[in-house]
């Protein structure tokens, strides 16, 4: 399911699944995003080595594929931490203290927003709106949506 892009699964690099995914989806109208989503989901990121394979199979240049991968926030270039915490920092969540929450989480996870902790345990990222604006502040923790979140609840979820 699509929720996987918000989590950190990960399979070791292997070109075969890339070929399989591209083969399976290349018949779609506009297949590149669906293919990249599928690879991102399967490996937890889009490996550099996948790009020439996809480019070749879709008859695109490698630069075109590279351009698409780098444009969209969702496509990771390296695996994330074992837990991915995406905190909303759009206006509705700001009005309920999202910036303070992010500061607390940075401290407790020992990371700066946008980074993965050195032990690979947690990736802390910003997201701009999860559509849960009446129950702010909101976050996605390992793909699960939380509303009225505080640092203690977020920590408890990551420690599970």
């Amino acid at each position: 399911m699509t929720t996987a892009i918000h989590k950190a699964p990960a399979a070791a690099w292997n070109p075969d699944p890339v070929r399989e995914v591209a083969e399976r989806l290349k018949g779609l109208d506009g297949p590149l995003l669906p293919i990249l989503h599928a690879i991102n989901e399967q490996f937890g990121y889009v490996d550099e080595r996948a790009l020439p394979i996809i480019a070749d199979m879709l008859n695109l240049t490698r630069a075109e594929v590279q351009g698409v991968v780098s444009f969209y926030h969702d496509f990771r270039r390296a695996p994330a931490g074992r837990h991915v915490v995406k905190v909303c920092r759009a206006e509705a969540c700001q009005s309920m203290g999202a910036e303070r929450l992010i500061g607390e989480l940075e401290k407790s996870f020992g990371v700066t927003l946008g980074e993965t902790s050195t032990d690979g345990r947690v990736t802390l990222e910003a997201v701009y709106c999860l559509g849960n604006c009446a129950l702010s502040p909101a976050a996605l923790i390992d793909g699960k949506l939380f509303g009225r979140l505080d640092a203690a609840k977020a920590q408890a979820q990551v420690s599970k």
């Binding site: 699509t2 109208d29 506009g30 297949p31 590149l32 995003l33 669906p34 990249l36 989503h37 879709l58 075109e64 351009g67 698409v68 444009f71 969209y72 926030h73 969702d74 496509f75 997201v127 701009y128």
Partner: peptide
């Protein structure tokens, strides 16, 4: 079809580009 985390894709022509795989 699923977006990929770009706010700009709510703009209609940008959305079309994205749908086409760019």
């Amino acid at each position: 079809r699923i977006g990929a985390g770009a706010y700009i894709c709510g703009e209609e022509t940008s959305l079309l580009e994205s749908l086409e795989g760019r």
